[in-house]
Design a protein around this nucleic acid. Sequence first.
DNA 1: AGCCTGCTGTCAGATAGTGGCAGCAGCGAT
DNA 2: ATCGCTGCTGCCACTATCTGACAGCAGGCT
Lengths: 231, 231
Amino acid sequence: MTIARSERLLVLLQVLRRYRQPVSGARLAAETGVSLRTLYRDIASLQAQGAFIEGEAGLGYVLNPGFMLPPMMFSEEEIEALVLGSRWVAKTADPRLAAGAVDALAKIATVLPPDLRQEVDTSTLLVGPAKRQEGRADLGLIRKAIRAERILELAYEDDKGTLTTRRVWPFALGFFDSVRVLVAWCELRQDFRHFRTDRMISVTSTEQRYPRRRQVLLKEWRETQGIPNGP
Amino acid sequence: MTIARSERLLVLLQVLRRYRQPVSGARLAAETGVSLRTLYRDIASLQAQGAFIEGEAGLGYVLNPGFMLPPMMFSEEEIEALVLGSRWVAKTADPRLAAGAVDALAKIATVLPPDLRQEVDTSTLLVGPAKRQEGRADLGLIRKAIRAERILELAYEDDKGTLTTRRVWPFALGFFDSVRVLVAWCELRQDFRHFRTDRMISVTSTEQRYPRRRQVLLKEWRETQGIPNGP
DNA sequence: AGCCTGCTGTCAGATAGTGGCAGCAGCGAT
DNA sequence: ATCGCTGCTGCCACTATCTGACAGCAGGCT
């Protein structure tokens, strides 16, 4: 990847936008296809032009969010990705989230210049039929409980057909090809448990907040699963 | 005023933003301290990077508003939908489209108010592992051909193991659980055909444009499939 | 102390940027 | 139609900017 400096600076800006956590200069240098020395020069250039990039020794660089520097418009690839993603959500997720996908895309479309708006309407990336396994569970309720870190009461039928009632701390929802799985801390078992949403007999949200942060639970669960990191 | 090109491009963008009415290239050249010839090169560079600058002979240049994304408001549901959709694309699609999904989300995040930006980072809707069936086919190339309505030359191995070479008019790409399917008009068979991307031996893009609009082909294909409408 | 990382200086060679000129094309006014 | 204004592209030689490598210092974390 050998691109001119003037273009590279904008690429670098986007790479920085992409990472939210500190990134090392070496990594940025690799991504922009340039030596470490040159990367330092590039960073200095961006800072001189007003970009608020913080660099801390031993950590890396972070782009302070909330400041707009070009290129801010979406590329064709990005539009296609947004459209395809929204279509998948619209087909796969529960009705409320599906509506959210459609609405979000519509909002994005309104701020697009005409030619890109055209891309949204005419994109021909299609999503295959969903093999939804419907349960009585209200996914909207579950997502809301996850966001608000509220305890849920589940009536659940496990894979052996045994019915149990549990209080759980919900913190993630996994979307697989045909099933949706709630990941939660189970008060009954005092451990992480997975619950297929189609096996939930009933779901009740309490007003009670569980005592830990869902990000922390997610991190610990990932470690038990041997999943390194990332969404 | 003699500044480096990389910085000058950003200055030029600011100058363009300042004017609302058309500005002549000569004036822009003077303001950025550069010859007219070079200014034309600068404008070309900005356009190549996605800036929507319109230049009309006899009038001048105008920066199409909308190059910058305005601050946007989304509901929590909409944010979750966007994040989930992007994560799915990032896991499922080809590397370029996957990067597009991540980049698009990053751009959206920068124009979000802080509390919603938080939502993007902490969303705990997860996507299961992709069961990607990789082929040698370059999906990026295929998508580009679809967008530009270019004829593709395929070396394809059908389900019986027979190898054929065909010229096709690609107009849609279907994402299923484990396979990606190109939908195209096949010149050989004079009919619509589906091609699994993992069975493509080679894909070559021609510069030749096929004689019909892809939207029309899509509509006709849908009718033959008995698919009513909608994406 | 040791490791990782940010940051600066220097230098010679590679690269890209630059202006001037010439020519074509589209638009509006005369 | 003609003219003037403007956008746009090709060409070419000159220049300066950019680049990588090496070397060294500073600051945070374990």
